[in-house]
Design a protein around this nucleic acid. Structure first.
Lengths: 237, 237
DNA sequence: GTAGGACCTTGCCGTAGCGACAAAGTCAAC
DNA sequence: GTTGACTTTGTCGCTACGGCAAGGTCCTAC
């Protein structure tokens, strides 16, 4: 029988950890001195602790370890197989994240396009017809908080734009979809940002599948910002 | 200006998250209605929030994001480069873990060898000479809590064993070293477990470099357990 | 006999990033 | 006026412990 510190040194954990395992019911001491409260551990506890640490190093949470310790071996093997697949999934996700970070390092930093999945959005819109995008400003009054959604160009000699309004107008529901969004930072040319966005989409082999939106956001103070948003297929990035 | 739920839906986060960002000082609303407490967000906050989410998806903690948002771009690039290397390290660690788990699946489950780094250990020992390992039992009295360390066989016709004792005996300090330990579970043949251990070392291309120890642990109740421990080089597993 | 030092106990706070409630106030529509 | 969607603050919960504090225990050295 050993005291808590001896067992801790033998296995390479802290006494604090052993007390924690005791509290959560994962590893109880073989005996507890009634008068002093000292914990005493025996060989059975050593063996159990080694198994605990072994499973923990495979990334299993303590809750699951507690279940597996007293389970038949078939269940243990199944759990191991599951975490192997889980780890491989995590590795793929991390590789993806690293690729994103490297992409940010390689990309000119004018915009930071990001893939996301948006739920359906309800808007109140008023339709307008424009001959040229430059006329957008004429239908986009400044305050308060106006949102302009430019749905798509049409080969009818102009554009059909949907201007969101505060109160009046027709309801329009955009379906849930995968998008790439880029918020154009203040003091950045929108045209340039749009070119960057399409170049980014091209490099990532993403195809545009739905409405392309250019949201002009005008603050109550007159501050102005633009969000570019394109619907894409959900290909891996 | 939008209320919290509108901004949350636009960016794809929860209102709870935005309130959290406000509390930790990461993203404050543009204005707060003094009478109702409602938070109002403008385009500057939208832009900042998009950057926050972008950096967060790269695995950066919120504390570091808070620093980077107002930092020069060079610092951002450096942070990105750092997390790329960090992610690659994590991927290597995960691949290692997956290999371990697959190894456990492939290994006969009689033992679970584990690599560890042990600090120096001080023992009080009494040296005995044995003609045959079976004589170990004669020098290993049962209670209380006796630990027998069998250092190594010698070609002098017998073994030199160091039996740890409670009070008397010479001090012996084992240096810090990398080891592979295996706790032989109760009701398992020690010889068979030893064979499994050496087979495992062989498959992992590990060489034994220091004292081989077979610790016989005897409990106060007479319960008996064996820990096999070999010192190895610190090759990757 | 006692003073030290190493060890042990319980307990509470902190970690990252929110999710899940709960009780109560706000706002617009019908 | 009432409903329903939305907001506020607050607290607890999650993982696997680390750190600290105040106090009790054990053994050795003088």
């Amino acid at each position: 029988m050993w005291r808590i510190g001896q067992l801790a040194r033998m296995v390479g954990v802290s006494g604090r950890t052993l007390r924690h395992y005791d509290k959560i019911g994962l590893l109880a001491p073989a005996a507890v001195d009634h008068s002093t409260g000292y914990r005493w551990y025996g060989v059975a506890e050593l063996s159990r602790l080694e198994r605990i640490r072994g499973l923990q190093r495979l990334g299993l949470p303590l809750r699951q370890i507690a279940d597996l310790l007293d389970a038949p071996e078939a269940q243990l093997r199944q759990a191991l197989a599951e975490i192997v697949t889980g780890i491989k999934r995590d590795i793929a996700a991390l590789a993806d994240t690293a690729a994103q970070a490297e992409d940010h390092l390689a990309t000119p930093m004018s915009i930071l396009p990001q893939q996301a999945t948006l739920g359906p959005r309800r808007l109140r819109v008023r339709h307008v017809r424009l001959d040229h995008p430059s006329e957008l400003a004429t239908v986009c009054p400044a305050p308060p908080a106006t949102l302009l959604t430019w749905l798509r160009g049409q080969p009818t000699g102009g554009f059909t734009a949907a201007v969101t309004t505060d109160r009046v107008g027709e309801h329009l529901t955009l379906p849930a979809r995968a998008v790439v969004r880029a918020v154009v930072p203040p003091s950045t040319d929108v045209v340039r940002a749009g070119q960057d966005l399409f170049g980014w989409l091209d490099r990532h082999h993403l195809a545009i599948t739905g409405p392309t939106m250019e949201e002009h956001l005008v603050d109550a103070d007159g501050a102005h910002a633009v969000v570019l948003e394109v619907s894409v297929r959900t290909h891996a990035i």
